[in-house]
């Protein structure tokens, strides 16, 4: 993964407090939209979607007074660009005890870009059960969609050029919370389909 610092200085567009506030707002929106959290299951997409999902679950739990099931959904094996680069290690898929049948599944990811990750996630989900509905929460929506996919809950809409990089840092994995936008990377990153994690 290319760190954006390599070409131009990365600019912080959300600081730790902004990230906290965005997650709190998303937690409330999830509750409002679903009229509570009775059948909500949060599934984070590795790697950075997982801690974000856990934090959303904590916040929803605080508001509702009861724990919300949370898990993770690895999409590596369902990616459509699997054959375009060397095979890579897998993330963890871990469903909460109740499974996802008839649940309202909220997928949680850090950055929404081409939409290919979410398409793969929908495929992965269909192997695991039949949710009542699927919603999508992302911390950053940076545009440039290549699929008819939109997020239901967005922390921040971030208009970007495809030559820029957006990087989400979460304290669980990176030591601090922030959203960084980096300068031009050259032509390598011009294709949003190369989206992976939070660093593109």
């Amino acid at each position: 993964m290319v760190r954006s610092e390599s070409s131009h200085e990365a600019r912080e567009v959300l600081d730790a407090d902004d990230v906290q506030r965005a997650l709190t707002r998303i937690a409330h929106e999830v509750l409002e939209r679903n009229k509570g959290a009775q059948s909500v299951v949060l599934l984070g997409i590795p790697s950075r979607g997982v801690p974000l999902a856990q934090r959303l679950a904590t916040r929803i739990g605080e508001v509702e007074g009861r724990a919300v099931p949370v898990g993770s959904l690895d999409i590596t094996m369902f990616r459509d660009d699997l054959r375009m680069r060397p095979a890579r290690g897998l993330g963890r898929t871990e469903l909460p005890d109740g499974g996802i049948d008839d649940a309202v599944v909220v997928l949680v990811d850090d950055v929404l870009y081409s939409g290919r990750t979410i398409r793969a996630a929908l495929d992965a989900l269909s192997e695991l059960g039949r949710p009542q509905s699927v919603q999508l929460a992302v911390l950053v929506d940076r545009g440039h969609r290549q699929f008819p996919i939109r997020a239901d809950y967005v922390g921040k809409n971030l208009p970007t050029s495809t030559r820029e990089t957006v990087q989400v840092l979460v304290s669980e994995l990176d030591g601090s919370d922030a959203v960084l936008i980096g300068g031009t990377e050259g032509d390598d990153s011009a294709d949003p389909s190369g989206e992976q994690g939070g660093s593109v």
Binding site: M77, L82, R83, M84, R85, P86, A87, R88, G89
Partner: peptide
């Protein structure tokens, strides 16, 4: 099998 065949190249 996945690591040898899954990608464009072996992992």
């Amino acid at each position: 099998l996945y690591l040898l065949l899954g990608g464009s190249d072996s992992a």
